[in-house]
Computed example of a mutant assay.
Amino acid sequence: MKITPLSERGLVRLIPATYHKPPALRGLVDTDDELAVLADIEGLTSARLTAERGRNLHLDRRELAWQRRRHDLAVYGNSHINAAFAYTRAGGNRFNDGDRGAWYCAWDVLTSVAEVAWHKTRELRYVGVFTETARYVELIADVIGDFPDLGDQPQHPALNPDPALGYPEGQALAGHIRREGHAGLIYPSVRHPTGRCLVLFEPTAIRNVRPGASWEISWTGTPDYSVTAL
Score class of each variant (00 low, 15 high):
218 S>N: 10
147 F>Q: 03
219 W>A: 06
169 E>R: 11
142 D>L: 07
137 V>I: 13
188 P>N: 04
184 G>Y: 01
179 R>C: 11
199 V>G: 04
211 P>I: 06
173 L>A: 01
145 G>F: 01
129 V>D: 15
151 G>Q: 08
133 T>E: 15
179 R>A: 15
197 C>L: 09
187 Y>W: 05
169 E>D: 11
155 Q>P: 05
174 A>G: 02
170 G>N: 05
206 I>V: 14
196 R>G: 08
161 P>M: 08
215 W>K: 00
146 D>W: 06
155 Q>A: 15
139 L>V: 06
169 E>P: 01
149 D>V: 04
176 H>V: 12
171 Q>H: 07
214 S>D: 11
201 F>P: 02
180 E>Y: 04
137 V>H: 10
194 T>D: 12
193 P>K: 11
160 N>C: 14
219 W>S: 06
221 G>Q: 08
208 N>Q: 12
217 I>L: 09
203 P>F: 02
169 E>Y: 04
138 E>V: 02
136 Y>R: 00
144 I>M: 14
169 E>V: 03
214 S>T: 11
179 R>V: 09
202 E>S: 13
217 I>V: 12
151 G>S: 15
145 G>I: 01
137 V>E: 15
173 L>N: 01
176 H>D: 14
219 W>T: 06
197 C>T: 05
137 V>T: 13
194 T>L: 11
208 N>E: 12
212 G>V: 00
201 F>L: 06
156 H>E: 08
214 S>F: 09
183 A>H: 13
184 G>K: 02
163 P>F: 02
133 T>M: 13
135 R>H: 09
193 P>Y: 07
191 R>F: 05
179 R>N: 14
138 E>A: 03
190 V>Q: 06
179 R>Q: 15
196 R>Y: 09
219 W>G: 06
147 F>E: 01
171 Q>R: 09
212 G>E: 04
175 G>I: 02
203 P>K: 04
188 P>S: 03
211 P>W: 00
180 E>V: 02
151 G>A: 09
182 H>C: 02
197 C>H: 08
185 L>C: 06
137 V>P: 01
216 E>I: 12
220 T>V: 11
219 W>Q: 06
175 G>M: 05
176 H>R: 15
181 G>R: 02
186 I>H: 07
175 G>S: 09
156 H>F: 07
137 V>M: 14
181 G>N: 00
167 Y>R: 09
180 E>H: 10
154 P>Q: 12
216 E>A: 12
146 D>R: 12
132 E>L: 14
180 E>A: 14
181 G>F: 00
160 N>Y: 05
130 F>I: 02
200 L>S: 10
186 I>N: 08
145 G>Q: 00
146 D>L: 07
182 H>W: 13
162 D>T: 11
141 A>W: 00
148 P>N: 03
151 G>N: 10
